[in-house]
Write a protein that binds this DNA or RNA. Structure first.
Lengths: 192, 192
DNA sequence: GATCTATTGTACCGATCGGTACACTGAGTG
DNA sequence: CACTCAGTGTACCGATCGGTACAATAGATC
């Protein structure tokens, strides 16, 4: 809907970049305007309820993109180990090797946690469920598959925080590279 | 220094609560004032450089408290497994079973990442090093001890995010309860 | 009691916040 | 050509932002 220079999807993409980098409270309308190249009036034309609307649009687009690029491949047929390896590649690209923050992680802070809880929780849940599906396919019992799937997402989110906080850039990639082997390990072989 | 009703340590404690819950951008002077019971003038009397000063004071006090309650016990003598168990108890209390956010995690967002990077990175580093010490005492090689120690902190930070994001409250406690056994496992016995 | 210094309340500053009003444009459509 | 209407720039709103000035107060010290 923007003139032609930027599609709606691209606009939401720019909004996502600002939100994931600055957080909700830190993302001012001025920055969102600058990042998209749209004036405030245009921003409010597309997103009548302001930042709240924009954030919901961003969450919707994120959910759709993750479905396509991450969750559906996880749920598709194929060797479990290979599906997990594919996830690692996608996740690594999505977070730019740990240099980019997680939007979901930034939306659990302060008042935004309750405000966007439904959307955020749904994405986390779908992610965990998709990994659990792979692990069930790999022969694990339901409970164990679920627990390990949670642990995988926990480690990805944690690795982002610790990598950025400690300045240890490669910690993120190292952490997620271990994931596939760890996840399918038979009650043994934690890692090297 | 506050009249007598609140010690400096207590004031900084209140500031910490606001900062860890709201993040830096979301913590307004009005809120910090209300939480401490000090007017803006008093706040600026104790912390002349405003929010920046307050945040540094909070980080300093956090570092001191973690040293006393978490890192020193980890580095002290005693059975490694017991030291890790103690860490879990302390961590669980500190984060109120996952209901309280991590200040460090909230300070890696936006411009605050660079601003407080030294302090934040130092705390993460000391934490990881302390856990690595335990694991060396448990007989692990230096590299493996370090990697597993990183993983422990990664899982704690990640569990906070995922527990709060997914609304799954007990995920945090479940995750950290697994940590001691996982950490000292002999290249086997990932967990259940 | 006079003095001093730490602490505080009040009032204020310019800047920016999120958000709105409105007139204008320009590309389609009849 | 007349009309419409999605899209936009400009100007503005009251509220709040982080921060400062300053005079009043108060408790200790002499």
């Amino acid at each position: 809907m923007p003139p032609a220079v930027l599609s709606r999807e691209e606009v939401i993409d720019r909004l996502m970049q600002v939100l994931r980098q600055q957080g909700y409270a830190g993302a001012s309308l001025a920055e969102l305007s600058k990042a998209t190249g749209l004036g405030k009036s245009s921003l409010y034309h597309y997103f009548p309820d302001g930042k709240d609307d924009m954030t919901r649009a961003v969450l919707g687009q994120l959910a759709a993109r993750l479905d396509r690029a991450l969750f559906n491949p996880l749920r598709a047929a194929g060797p479990p180990r290979r599906r997990l390896d594919a996830m690692v590649v996608t996740v690594n690209a999505f977070y730019r090797g740990g240099r980019e923050a997680c939007l979901l992680g930034n939306l659990v802070v302060g008042e935004t946690r309750e405000r966007f809880h439904h959307e955020v929780a749904a994405i986390f849940e779908e992610w965990i469920a998709a990994i659990a599906t792979v692990l069930r396919d790999a022969g694990f019992a339901k409970g164990l598959a679920r627990t390990r799937a949670e642990d995988a997402v926990v480690r990805i989110e944690g690795a982002l925080v610790v990598a950025q906080g400690s300045g240890n850039e490669d910690l993120f990639e190292r952490t997620i590279r271990r994931l596939p082997a760890d996840l399918v390990a038979r009650a043994a072989g934690r890692r090297g």
